[in-house]
Simulated scan of single mutants.
Amino acid sequence: MSEQHHEDRELVSPRDRFGERIRTNLSAESIQARIIETELRTLALTFEELSTSAQVPQAAALLLGARRRYVAGEGKAAAYAQLLNADLSSTLSNVFLVDGHALQPLTVLTDVRASDVLIAFSLRRYREETVRLGRLFREAGGQLVVITDSEDAPLAPLATSLIRVRTGSASYADSPTPVAAVCHLLSALTTASAKGARRRLAERDRLVARLGLYSSDPARPDVEEETET
């Protein structure tokens, strides 16, 4: 572990990182340059490590073979969970976001099967809700994919597939860039091998047009209606 990485891991809270990284005497241009440079380095390092690992392809295989796919994360990690859930739902059936509202952890844990997979986003400071859900899901016999920033994370020992991302940053907040990139990578690998993905995407496009969901994509008649006229 590099000295810089060790120092970064010591800065546990956003307050700690703000005091160490943000200098009020720096110009906006200087801060921007530092952040861009660090984000590029962090993303490159994450991809470099993942390219020598089979963890993302393994996670994609678990998702493809699953009966039900659950995605969970709390706090800031909830945004990553929503992102991955949106992408996976486009091409796979039975993808569910455990958000504590529409779908409660209790509901999920009541009926866990060995063919079920939970993708848990668990990043420092490691929200207890996600840790508990992951542990209980694994104890119930489900498969666990953990996306985290450290091999020492609470859920790491329980992971069927552990995807580690680097989150070093020049800002008070840990970098979201590699986490979002891993969401994109995982959903792309899963979709590439998903049966019926093309048909599902085509059907979604047809329904999007019928519902007029996007202002730049006005509702169009579907194929059957065009044939009849």
Rank of each mutant, 00 (worst) to 15 (best):
E151V: 13
I35V: 15
R125F: 12
Q55H: 09
I31K: 12
S175V: 12
A72D: 00
Q104H: 11
L118A: 03
E74V: 13
L64K: 03
L63P: 00
N85Q: 09
V145E: 01
A59F: 02
A81M: 07
Y126V: 11
L103K: 04
R138W: 05
R127W: 11
L50W: 06
I31W: 10
D87Y: 09
A72M: 05
N85Y: 13
V165M: 05
G141N: 08
I31A: 14
A72S: 09
L133Y: 03
I119G: 01
E74N: 08
L64R: 06
D152I: 04
L144Y: 04
R127H: 15
V95G: 01
S169Q: 05
Y80H: 08
T167V: 15
A120H: 02
V131T: 13
L43R: 10
V145A: 03
R125D: 15
R67S: 15
S150N: 11
R68P: 02
L123C: 06
R67I: 09
A156F: 07
Y126C: 08
D174G: 06
E128S: 12
R164P: 01
F121E: 01
F47M: 14
Y80A: 04
G65E: 13
A79C: 05
S89K: 00
R164W: 04
L144T: 04
Y80E: 01
L123G: 01
V146M: 06
I36N: 08
Y126T: 09
L43N: 09
R124A: 15
A44V: 08
Q32R: 15
T160C: 01
G65M: 12
A33R: 14
E128C: 01
A66R: 02
L92W: 00
L64N: 03
I36D: 11
N85D: 10
Q55L: 06
A102H: 11
L50T: 05
D174C: 10
A59I: 05
L50C: 08
S53F: 10
R127E: 14
G134Q: 04
A173W: 14
V71C: 05
A54H: 12
I163N: 00
L133I: 09
L136G: 00
A159M: 04
G73S: 05
I147T: 03
K76F: 08
D152K: 12
E49N: 14
Q104I: 06
L62D: 07
R68E: 01
S89L: 06
A170V: 10
Q58R: 14
L84V: 09
P57Q: 10
S93M: 05
L109D: 03
Q143H: 09
A60Q: 03
R166N: 13
P57N: 08
L109G: 01
Q55G: 02
A60R: 00
L43A: 14
Q82C: 07
G134F: 08
T160Y: 00
R69N: 07
L43D: 07
V131W: 05
D111W: 09
T91K: 00
F96G: 00
S90T: 11
L97P: 00
L123E: 00
E139Y: 04
S175N: 12
P57L: 12
A156K: 03
V71S: 02
T148G: 02
H101Y: 11
S93N: 12
L118W: 04
G65I: 12
T38F: 06
E128P: 00
T52M: 11
L158Y: 10
L123I: 10
